[in-house]
Structure formats: structure tokens, C-alpha cells
Design a protein around this nucleic acid. Sequence first.
DNA 1: GTGAAAGCGCTAACAA
DNA 2: TTGTTAGCGCTTTCAC
Lengths: 334, 334
Amino acid sequence: MNVTIKDIAKKAGVSHTTVSRALNDSPLINPETKERIKEIADQMNYTPNFSAKSLVLDRSYNLGLFFSTLDKGTSPNFFYETVRGVNNTIKDKYNLIVRGIDDYERYDRITNKRFDGIIVMSQSERDDAFIAYLLDKRIPHVVLNRHTGNAAVMNILSDDQQGAYRLVEYLVAQGHKRIATIEGREGFKSTQQRMEGCLRALGKHGVELLPQLREQGSYDVESGYAAMRKLLGNRELPTAVFCFNDDMAVGAMKAIAERGLRVPQDISIVGFDDNMFSGFVSPALTTVKRPIEQISRKGAETLLEMIEKKETLNPETIYLHTELVLRESVDRPR
Amino acid sequence: MNVTIKDIAKKAGVSHTTVSRALNDSPLINPETKERIKEIADQMNYTPNFSAKSLVLDRSYNLGLFFSTLDKGTSPNFFYETVRGVNNTIKDKYNLIVRGIDDYERYDRITNKRFDGIIVMSQSERDDAFIAYLLDKRIPHVVLNRHTGNAAVMNILSDDQQGAYRLVEYLVAQGHKRIATIEGREGFKSTQQRMEGCLRALGKHGVELLPQLREQGSYDVESGYAAMRKLLGNRELPTAVFCFNDDMAVGAMKAIAERGLRVPQDISIVGFDDNMFSGFVSPALTTVKRPIEQISRKGAETLLEMIEKKETLNPETIYLHTELVLRESVDRPR
DNA sequence: GTGAAAGCGCTAACAA
DNA sequence: TTGTTAGCGCTTTCAC
């Protein structure tokens, strides 16, 4: 059996109450007693039983990081950077529990006893039921990456629409008029946002988005490849393709290469996200940098604050800026 | 306050013990009573308090997934596939806690009260201290991805050495004699294993590995790029480069392209891992497929079994096979 | 500055 | 088949 505060109490000749207080740095305890108790605890190799602590303090020391899904539509880079951002912020104060929302059939195992707070990395409106559940159960949470439209929740996200706008405007400025899109997973908010930015930019400059140049993707490499192949089936090819993320851009470039065409001389390609990879494919990808790690970090900090203060902060929507990254995958059309 | 079994008991007119038993499907309870209690519980929206359960049952329902590090040397794809593999296996029976071993200064917050079991995705011998700690504390665990040499621990890993052997042998069979290596992070077991396989193959066919053609990398894209640039500084270039993972291979290809050379016509490139990406870079990467998701899955299953049976299974080392994946990045030297 | 006692929500030995 | 009681390890009143 493990060492408990009672064991320490016995050895120190005090009550277990005193031990508890000493170990928690209560100001009530005589500094010397405190010191002595701590030493004994150390030497007995004491570690607190978190289940007991949790029970009485009503805190689990667990933080959840929930993605819409862990299977399809979450790119490895995105996943990695998010976990890293959050993890670096919470350090070892809390346990970080990583989950896909779609892992659950019912949410009732997700309780405020089990999670002190939850970070929702949300990619789809389908998460709204989950978020509503958290709200209902009064589980502190922040929603990253997607605007919920619910005034009660704290949102932190990047201005994808603005990013897409600038990206497409850049394409147009280079002289492109025949622009194709390989869009993200259907129903994902990011897909809609990027499309809207794209449309705004196109509209402003009087360029039309032809229906036959729109392809649906699902944010993974394969889907970019497949979509580009369809695009290449057009009798008149696009001069530039806006892929809604970098992974799909890589797939698209592959399809173009297979066809014997070159990027950017024959077709320009742009992506979105700015993966760790994107500067290293050939040609290096022109894209929009999304501050994923920063969002996660900020999200974690905010959640921590909510938990400590035991109240919902003024729920607001925080936008972090995207950034146009010009590299080599865009040329002027011929 | 949340609903407890006592509330249910009151409403049902039974003792809380009966409620507990009913909810846990004890065979002792009258089926009708059981049914009735369950209904009441449902309707009162009862959810068990896991802290209390944990305290008395001495189980935390937490599973740890520990990487050597979450920062450097863990590639996003690798990370993603591992988490996914484990997560899909444990479903929502347990909470999955993801951590970097190097997040901890001291291990004493890692207790058997807090973790029912731990999966160590180990990449470096530096993890041995951690593994020893788990052994000492009798926390059930499996070690993936690396052979510990400790007879007491369950190992599941891929035969990297054999994979590297076949890969390099293939290179030699294509006629390559001037082969360079961009090696993995120093001290990582995977690095050593792949090097050994490489050396074995080379030795068998009487090919020498020139010191000036060996470069150290650290498993990320940038390091592959930097290493390749150094390699390109040689007056006599290698005809083929073995990059110890696919990420570095991508970086290397970039450096080669920048130099105005072509893969595989001028220099052949091979990687290791078989990322989701690897089939989609141009040229598609010849590499060795490592069954990461399978390893994680198997690891999780094994750990679960250990936990349920409450005993260490016969500790053994399980090797899962790697597979040579021939694509387009290798040509015969000119 | 310290201790006695109660209680967090649950399970389990023992009794009935 | 059900209930009584104790206890898991901890924190927190309340009293001294």
C-alpha cells in the first residue's frame, strides 16, 4: 500500500489534519512543524492520492482537448501543433486528455467531475450539440478554431476569411482569371470561411468562379490529388488552384506533375495553413499561415484562467491574424 | 449539486447500496428492482462520480500515452498515427492522457493512483529511467517502438533494422556504390537500428560508407534539408541518399531541387516510415513502411489485457514487420 | 497552532 | 434479495 497522510502523521507524532495542512502550505502551521512534516513526507516517498483529493475538492485535475474527429479531416500537422501548444501551456499541472468528439455516442460520461475544463478544437457545426452539452453541464470550456455564434462561449480563432481573401486577391493581382478551388471537408466551418473570403476577393475584382472549376476535397492529401485529377479533366484548364489546405495542395501538385505539367509555370497552386512541410515541397508552397499553436496556447491559458477564477470570463471572440506567405508556387499566367 | 446514488435511493425507496449494485449490474439484485432503479437514474440524469469510484476501487480510469518528447524529434505523422491507433482501441472506456516524458522534472506525480497503465512510445534510451520508475512503482506498462533490453517489460516494435537492410540492399542492387546517409536524431534507438541495418547490407555487398557522406539529422524536415546541403558540398556527390525518415527525405529533395539537380536522375533518395505524404511528393518516395498504427493498437490491447488480468503478461518482445515500398525516387546511377 | 470529527460519493463485507 | 455499516484518503469546519 502507498503512504498516506496518516502514516506521516503517525511518524511525525501529529494529527493527519496537521499533515494535510502542512503539505498544502497552510499559513496556520508552525513553520518548523511544517518543515519537519515535509521532510518526513519526502523521505517516506509520499505522493498524494489524487482520487481522494478530487473527491473532496471536487476537481479532477483533468483537462480535455476535444477534436471534432480524430480520424478523417484532421491533418497530422494540425493535430500535432494543437496538442503541443496546449501541452506546453498546462505543463504538468493537469492531465491532458485528447479525444475525438465523434468517439462518443453519448456525452454523459463527460462530467464536470471528470473534467475541470475542456478545450474544443472545433471544425464543424456538428460540434454544436457537444458545446451545448458543455454549456448545460456547466463545464468550463473554450472553443477554438470556429465561431459558434453562441454569445455565451469563448471563441478563439484565426481570421481564415481574411486570409483567403488576401490570398485570392494576390492570385488575381498576378493576373489569374481562371481560378479553381479544391475545397475543404463539407460542412466544416473552415471550408465555408475560406470560400467566403475567396468569393469576396473574386467578386471585388470581377472574376467569376466557374462551377466546373470547383471541387470538393476533405483536407487530406489523397482528396487533393483526386480533386486535381478531376480538374485536369476540363478542356480548358485553370491557371491557378486554391487548395483549402496545404495537404491537399501537395496532392494537387502530384496530380499536376503526373500529367506532365509544371507548377507554377503551367498551373499556379496555393494552399492554406502553412504546414511544417510547406516550405519544403518543390516548388515551395505559397500559402496562408494560420497561427495554430498560438491559438491553442491562448485557448489553454484562457481556460486555465476560467477554471482558477471559477467563473466564465466575459465571453468574447478573439481573432488571431493569418499571414500571407509568398513562396514559389505562383507565377503569372501565360 | 449533482445527483448521487443516495438521491436515487431516496426516490426509489431503497438503500444506496442497492442502487449501487443495480447500476453495476450485480446479479444479486432482483431484475425488476434493477430495471426500476435504472429508469429512475436515467430520468434523474445521474452520472457516476468517478473520483469516488476511483478512490474506492483504486483505479483512475486514466491511461497514459507517453512520448519521449512532444517537441523535437517526434514527427507529426508519427504522433498522429500513434494517438489514433491507441485511441481507437481504448474507445471511451478510459481517458487517454498524452504526454512528453521530458515534460516532467520529477516523476513522482505519476502514480498508480493516477494511471491505470501507461503506454510508452519510446524513442530514446534516455527513457530508461522513466521505464525503471514505472517498473519500480508497479504501474502496468508496455514499451513501444524500442527494445529496452529489460526482460521484465513488454516490447512491441517494428524490425527497423531488417527494413533498413532491405532498403539499402535494394539501393545496392540498383547499382549504387556511393551512398550517403542522413541519420536520425542522435541517441534515438531508431537511428541506431536503421544504421545497423544499413551497415549490414552495405557490408554484405562490400560497399563502404564514406565518413564524408554521413550526416546527422534530427528527424524533422529542416534537418534533412540542412544535411543534404552539406552533402551537396562534397566534390564528388553521392548517387543515392538514405534518409532515416520521410520528413528528412522531403527536406533533402528540396535541397537537391534548389541545386538544380533532379531526383532520381541525378541523385536517388529513399526514406523510412511511409508517411501519408510520401506517395504524394514528386517523385513519390521509395521508403519502408513502418506499421505505426498497428503497433499502437497492439500496444493498447496488450496494456488493457494486463490491466484487466491484474498481472504482467509474460513479457515478450513482439516485432511487427516493415515493408519495402518501391516508388519513383530511385533510379540506377549513371 | 493543532486536533477531533464529519463528510465527499462510492463499494463491499457482513448481517438479516 | 436487500440493508447496515465501515472505510477508501483527503479537506474542512469547529473547538480548544
